[in-house]
Design a binder for these strands. Structure first.
Length: 473
RNA sequence: GCGAUCAUAGUUCAGUGGUAGAACAUCGGUUUGUGGUACCGAGUAUCAGGGUCCGAUUCCCUGUGAUCGCCCCA
């Protein structure tokens, strides 16, 4: 019955929503109590663009989590967790209007208490808020914060693009020196390397500080104004809202115009140029490959100076962004904190997993049990339950299928799990205080007293694991 | 936000204007308490709504969802 009614329910619910408007739970309850109107059907599917990450996929997610947990302390990061919701203003002010993230993709709503809140479309804004709120500026600098969690963007779902996706986010506060930029990029390299994700490209650019950027943008506007006719529709509007983003446009005609546009790197002020130059020197010193991409701007307003993106190319040469970041030296100040230079980057975990699968990279599998307990009869079941917990206390992983009655089906399960030994306790054994130990490889079995079970199990576990998939009697 | 393709069982796919099929998976059985193979059996599906029609899972429209491209990004 399951599937049919699920799908029916989805459309029923949607139909009801559209035709009758949404009902509050109170009203529904009151109404159904009086008239016994059936409750609204439950939609057994998450909202669009959201998904479950099922156990089989967790092998990859575990691997990512393990690598992250291993790497972030090495570089001196402290873990921080922040809410997935903030006041909407925080994002609007930090990311900036005119960006796609704010104009099109943010989930905002008003709570019962009339607060205008938003699901975070990225993590850094919340981290910056937390930094100011908790006065972290008094801590020894630099302050390095690591955060993992879901972010939300109301975007059109596609492969590797979800409305809820996970990011691993690294931020460093309180140092202006580009050596930090280099170190952060090195960290990104290390993480990708540890995950077995090779052939990634680091695209780097510097968009300067607000001072040199202001001059640059003026120059850019006058350049694009002169070529306005050749630009696409969106870019014409970008010219007024966010001219930097024209450089990013993938439309052929815009790209052609952009190719001859003044480049940020050529119009940096002295200190910004030095900053960028020394970053490149550090990267060379670390032997980290990179590509300077003068077209690279980024979708968030708060960036200054260094910006970078991490791309991977698949078989067809299609480029996918695995992560990105940059410096945001003015953000803390603009949010009301004391002037604090900062830099950060984020990796998209969903995309890392996708990439690992594509490259057949190593995943992390949970340990597999090598011993199975089979039981027959009520008394034996009780004894087995006890034996299971006794062995578990010794740190021994045991498989079982206590809910089943027949020995045959239990052994079939044991066989399928590929265990090396099955402990069988039947009515007779339970009374005699013995167990049968069956070697699943040879099929031979012997009866031993219960108190010797632990030793027998340990002996098996000391030997090398054997892969047993089929009956081999 | 725009465009294209698609929607049948848990999964992968057949098929038909009149009774819906396979494979794999799941569960059970093939004589007492023993795995594999083989054999037998069981359960589960036409995304939703409307239209045409005697009759629609099939044809048409709308909605929803998925995939892909644009856009954007992680």
């Amino acid at each position: 019955m399951a599937r049919k009614s699920i799908k029916k329910n989805i459309s029923l619910l949607k139909k009801n929503d559209v035709k009758k408007g949404k009902k509050t739970p109170k009203k529904i309850l009151a109404k159904s109590a009086k008239k016994r109107v059936p409750l609204e059907p439950i939609v057994l599917q998450p909202p669009r663009g959201m998904r479950d990450i099922l156990p089989n996929e967790q092998e990859y997610w575990n691997r990512v989590r393990m690598v992250l947990d291993k790497e972030y302390p090495k570089y001196g990061f402290g873990r921080i967790d922040i809410p997935i919701m903030e006041y909407a203003n925080l994002f609007v002010r930090s990311i900036g209007t005119g960006t796609d993230l704010i104009d099109k993709e943010i989930y905002t709503f008003v709570t019962k208490g009339k607060d205008r809140v938003a699901l975070r479309p990225e993590i850094t804004a919340g981290i910056a808020r937390s930094y100011i709120q908790h006065g972290m500026n008094v801590l020894a600098k630099p302050i390095k914060l690591f955060c993992v969690g879901p972010v939300y963007r109301y975007d059109r779902p596609q492969e590797g693009r979800y409305r809820e996706h996970w990011q691993a986010n690294f931020d460093i506060f309180g140092e202006e020196d580009s050596v930090l930029d280099a170190q952060l990029i090195q960290l990104a390299h290390r993480i990708l390397g540890a995950l077995g994700i090779k052939n990634v490209q680091f695209q780097i650019n510097s968009i300067g500080c607000p001072d040199c950027r202001r001059e640059y943008i003026e120059m850019l506007i006058s350049y694009f104004e002169s070529k306005k006719k050749k630009l696409c529709k969106t870019c014409k509007s970008r010219l007024k809202i966010n001219p930097l983003r024209i450089l990013d446009c993938k439309e052929d005609k815009c790209a052609q115009v952009s190719a001859n546009a003044p480049q940020t790197v050529d119009h940096l002020c002295n200190s910004c140029r030095d900053h960028f130059k020394s970053l490149l020197e550090y990267l060379d010193e670390l032997e980290l490959p990179y590509t300077i991409n003068p077209q690279l701007v980024r979708g968030l307003d708060y960036y200054t100076r260094t910006v970078f993106e991490i791309w991977s190319a698949d078989e067809e040469g299609k480029k996918k962004s695995l992560g990105g970041g940059g410096r945001y030296d003015k953000l803390i100040e603009s949010l009301g904190g004391e002037p604090t230079p900062a830099i950060g980057f984020a990796l998209g975990i969903d995309r890392l997993v996708l990439e690992m699968k594509r490259l057949k990279a190593k995943s992390y599998e949970n340990p597999k049990p090598r011993i199975f307990i089979a039981q027959l009869g009520n008394l034996a079941k009780k004894k087995s339950l006890k034996l299971f917990s006794d062995l578990e206390k010794e740190g021994i992983l045991i498989a079982e299928s206590f809910g089943r009655g027949s020995l045959k089906s239990q052994l079939r399960t044991a066989n399928r799990l590929g265990v090396e030994m099955t402990i069988i306790i039947g009515q007779k054994e339970a009374l005699d205080e013995t167990v049968i130990i069956k070697n699943m490889l040879t099929g031979t079995q012997e009866t031993i007293p219960q108190e010797k079970v632990l030793n027998a199990v340990k002996k098996i576990l000391k030997s090398k694991p054997m892969i047993i998939r089929k009956k081999q009697i």
